[in-house]
Nucleic acid binder design. Sequence first.
RNA 1: GCGACUGUAGCUCAGCGGUAGAGCUCUCGGUUGUGGUCCGAGCGGUCGCGGGUUCGAACCCCGUCAGUCGCCCCA
Length: 443
Amino acid sequence: MSEKSKKPNKPSVYKPKPISGFPEWLPEERLVELKWLDHIRRTFESYGFASIETPSVEEIDVLLAKGEVDKEIYVLERLHKDEDDDKDARLALHFDQTVPFARYTAQHFNELTFPFKRYQMQRVWRGERPQLGRQREFYQCDIDVINIDNLPLAFDAEMAAVAYEVLDGLDIGRVQMRISNRKILTGLLESMDINDPVPVTRIIDKIEKLPIQQIENLLKEEKLSDNQIADIIQLAKTKGTKQDLDAIEPKNDKMKEGLDELAEVLDNLSHLPSEAIIADLSIVRGLDYYTGIVYETQLLDVEQFTGSVCSGGRYDNLASSFINKKLPGVGISIGFTRLFDVIRQSRRDLMNIGPKCPTDVLVYTEDKDLKETTNITAQTLRKRGFNVEVYDTVKKWEKHFKYAKNKGIPYIWYVNGPDTHEVKNMATDDKKETNPNDWNKDE
RNA sequence: GCGACUGUAGCUCAGCGGUAGAGCUCUCGGUUGUGGUCCGAGCGGUCGCGGGUUCGAACCCCGUCAGUCGCCCCA
């Protein structure tokens, strides 16, 4: 111990540790992430959704407008805050984009055209315990529509159609969206004189995770009779097509309304593959602001993760917390980071990891006197739309080659003389003479 | 917030009371000489942190912090 302390004083290094739940990717992964985000943006815009961004922070009172306090919210505070800062409105990082969107719509009500269709792709923050598919900082890609007074059910169908098209287009295996309508279960519960549907809802939500016996026991703890439990479970196990819904006997108007709405939405999605979107009455969602149609989406080809990568629903009253108008909305949110990270860790083969940089061509010369020609060549190629790096002339010849190989750069461009150029295709090993004005990538 | 497990080199890990190790990466040299190979050398570690037991702790004990996985909840 004493001998070690005699060591010459070394510069002290702070060893950084990863911050759990705040992910970061390597360049080759980030390139895939950007490709996915571009695809999502293009698809959203192809349906006419307009982009907006809202600040990362909202007043805490806005975030809690729907009385949902059990979410872990990160509060924003200055390190050197003034004595009288307590008077200021307290700010917090937003934990989703739906509540800020409702606030935005209410606040800019006069300047917006309705039905207002927007998409939003931003980071959100939740102070929960991280695990596979659950981060504390993550991207959500949301589309929502809000209208005045009434919002046609066609939009509920469109949300599902857009989300399915996005996910299907990412080439990450089979994706299945499951749809229900909250009115069906709450209608049934109301017919049983159960006023607070939340406890039962939470239990039904687990119907696929737990054995049916355990579900029954949990429902018994809610003081339900055996008959009631049987009815609830039978309903919740209903799964399939529109025809499977027809067999259900509505117990009251609300339940009938829910079933009719769900059938209409499914009708509106008949152009999609039959396995893509199914009815599943066990889908109820935890969030309390949903009032009608609800969605959840599973990756069927990723066994390690069964959670939903894309969820949402209809909310009739969310914006009315911020403005004295009736502004029903419906929206869906792709848990982008969840989706990306789950695939990254569990099905890397589906990611198509490519190069570590966007470079098309690495320009290199062995002859220091040709530096100017090298730079002009690179410039010419860049103007023609190629991504070009210049590798400095170094002692060890093969270093540039290893560099291109390791980074996945597809072409090396050799400047051999003022007008003598050669290009090597790294994939085929072919090398041929060319010039910067006419060269093109091999097909 | 609760439970289980894990913290050793930049990365993956071995060592589990007796001088801190390997592979990969990285740097340098040689070989090859239109190159992706091979060989050699080098750099790199308060063994998460703090206390205790011991002649002696990376190793045993206690605490603490961090991470991973479950639960809760959710994208």
